[in-house]
Amino acid sequence: MKRYFRLYLHFLQFSFSKAMEFRLDFTFRIIMDFIYYVVNILLFKVLFLHTNLIGGWTEEQMMIFIASYLLVDAINMTIVATNLWWFPAYINRGDLDYYLIRPVSPLFFLSLREFSANSFMNVVLAGTFFIYSIASYSEPFTLFQLMGLFALLINGFFIYYCIQMLMVIPVFWTQSPRGFIDLFYSLGIAMERPDRIFKGWLRVLFTVILPFALIASYPAKFFIEGLEAIDLLHIASVSIGLGLLLFFIWKKALRSYSSASS
């Protein structure tokens, strides 16, 4: 564990010095993510010009939800997104060999090697918006609610990572240039909508099969309305199930890796 921690510190050091080499790009990316946040907030601001409730939430409650998914997205962009973006190239070019022969878990190495320093600035931005949305919430809340929200968002990040990884892994079999990562980003919109709008089989899809609704909507719901024990059990079981599924498929994928480039 200590060895992995030390290794990760090296990743951080390397990533920051790399980011500083391309300062213009560094700045552009911060602005890009800032615009993404503004667009997301504006979208709901415009919708609230025409309605008082979306998915049962008022505008200030919705701001907590938006801040929650923006925070998860920023953490994902900082820690894993860049790594998974390059993942298909490693498989198709046969570069995975270099990761397999190293004395560390290849999944750890491939998922966390590149820390996106510019996106880290956006974690600060998203975090500030998160604090603002909580601070300006007019209803009283307890520290337990706040800690619960935070813990569930960390779990949400884990779910987001697992789904993303499961969308990229098929590259082992399809040898395509991007896997299903474009589909993942399209499906990711489900994370940006309150779970109460999903009904019937769509609800099953987004709370069990591709549990995007558990990433930010359930945590926000925990903070705003509280969750039943059954809901918390549901989040825990889906998270554990997803982690196990990822581990199983990863092992299977490695067995079918041919090492030859395409």
């Binding site: 979306i54 299903f180 489900a190 999903f198």
Partner: peptide, 19 residues
């Protein structure tokens, strides 16, 4: 990707507007 993007995006948008 084509079917997934088109179908799922429509379903999500429809769910939002229906609510």
């Amino acid at each position: 990707t084509f079917i997934g993007q088109t179908v799922v995006m429509v379903l999500i948008a429809r769910a939002l507007w229906q609510s």
